[in-house]
Design a protein around this nucleic acid. Structure first.
Length: 272
DNA sequence: AACTTCCCCAACCGCCGTTAT
DNA sequence: AATAACGGCGGTTGGGGAAGT
């Protein structure tokens, strides 16, 4: 016998959500949480099935959703991650804080897939994915062990909006967390001479004294800073490797200043 | 201006793994 | 151990706006 449908269709609303429904859902979840999606709509007074509520919350209403276009850096990260993980959108999304699996899936199908050579497009699905989900979770764990900088667990706390590691630029669109594939980024950067560690020290002590003394560094950091962090990724990789640190996902401004301060030393180590 | 085609993305569907009974 | 319920995931669809003719 097949599984019962997730909800009775009778009397339940479908299709786009109205602002009123959104408000009800947000208010309910903020007040009571979402321990039980199935029961939620009834308790909240929504004529929706639990699945629909969950999807709406996860993909649109969550407060930590990052709005705005996918940045070039994020696109590159998605491409790299897709190469490693295949169509495991939630796993990819877990590495891009603020982005949802649905969003990444859409971006992939509408933009990024087209960039692949045709033969890769044809066989683009699940190069590493096993048909067995348990197996693929083990692969995730395995990979996490090899690469502690990345996260594979969606339950793991992600950088909050107040965390300076998820730097927000002035236009709110060009931010990317260092949770993104540092290794991948560094690979990209290594292929791009403009971003070698030697070239990334455009931000000087004046910049740092301003940032570190500011109460709201978000206001003064911008695209240069994002570029800076990105270009320092290889050094971060080195730092994490050398110190075998517990690798907190969310490095703060002090961390980046430390990397900046030790750029020479880390570059040397990197070259060894 | 009217019509058609294309593109984007929110939402739905169905399946799977986990958990509770 | 078997079954049902649930949450989560990836694949797919279709409405609506943009672009093209």
């Amino acid at each position: 016998m097949g599984r019962a449908p997730c909800c009775e269709k009778m009397g339940l609303k479908r299709g786009p959500w109205t602002p009123e429904e959104d408000q009800i859902l947000i208010h309910y979840i903020n007040t009571y949480g979402h321990a039980n999606w199935r029961a939620l709509p009834k308790q909240a007074g929504l004529l929706r099935c639990g699945k629909s509520c969950r999807l709406r919350w996860i993909n649109y209403l969550r407060p930590d959703i990052k709005r705005g276009n996918i940045t070039k850096e994020e696109e590159d990260a998605i491409i790299n991650l897709h190469e490693m993980l295949g169509n495991r959108w939630s796993a990819i999304a877990a590495r891009l804080p603020g982005r949802t699996d649905n969003e990444i899936k859409n971006v992939w199908h509408t933009h990024l897939k087209k960039r692949l050579p045709e033969n890769q497009q044809k066989q683009s699905h699940n190069p590493k994915r096993s048909s067995n989900k348990k197996q693929s979770k083990m692969e995730d764990a395995e990979q996490e062990q090899q690469d502690p900088i990345q996260t594979t667990n969606t339950d793991r706390p992600q950088c909050s909006s107040s965390d300076t590691s998820s730097f927000t630029t002035s236009d709110n669109n060009s931010s990317i967390s260092n949770a993104t594939t540092n290794h991948d980024m560094s690979e990209n950067n290594n292929n791009n001479n403009a971003d070698t560690p030697e070239n990334n020290l455009a931000l000087d002590e004046d910049f740092w004294s301003e940032v570190l003394s500011s109460d709201n560094s978000d206001e003064i950091i911008g695209a240069d800073y994002d570029q800076f962090r990105l270009s320092l990724s290889p050094l971060v990789t080195q730092e994490e490797g050398v110190l075998s640190s517990s690798s907190t996902m969310c490095h703060d401004m002090d961390f980046w200043y430390n990397i900046y301060s030790r750029a020479e030393e880390l570059t040397e180590l990197l070259e060894l």
